[in-house]
């Protein structure tokens, strides 16, 4: 394996490991707390639920993308 490729794979593996730990914490903290509230919202206030569902998924997308970009920069910075 070329040196550059090996480095990329190593960086990615570290990023994946860190990301997994953070996401597991996220599962327990956020999803567990939101579950019951979203369930009741879905039953009683469908339109509000629909709007919040979109905001949640877009918010999570931006948050997690920023997190992966930050992790990538941090790890690459240490390797360079």
């Amino acid at each position: 394996m070329k040196k550059g490729t090996a480095k990329t794979v190593r960086v990615f593996a570290i990023e994946l490991a860190l990301y997994t730990v953070l996401v597991v914490i996220y599962f327990f903290l956020v999803l567990h707390l939101l579950g019951q509230w979203l369930y009741e919202l879905e039953i009683h206030h469908r339109y509000t639920y629909a709007g919040i569902a979109i905001l949640l998924i877009i918010g999570q997308a931006i948050l997690l993308e920023s997190l992966t970009t930050f992790l990538m920069r941090l790890i690459r910075g240490r390797f360079d």
């Binding site: 996401v23 996220y26 599962f27 999803l31 939101l34 579950g35 979203l38 879905e42 469908r46 339109y47 639920y49 629909a50 709007g51 919040i52 569902a53 979109i54 949640l56 998924i57 999570q60 997308a61 997690l64």
Partner: peptide
Amino acid sequence: TFSHAVKGNVDILIALVMHT
């Protein structure tokens, strides 16, 4: 998503987990 959520066809918790 909005249209389906109003019709009761969206479980956003499943979507959030898949998205990670």
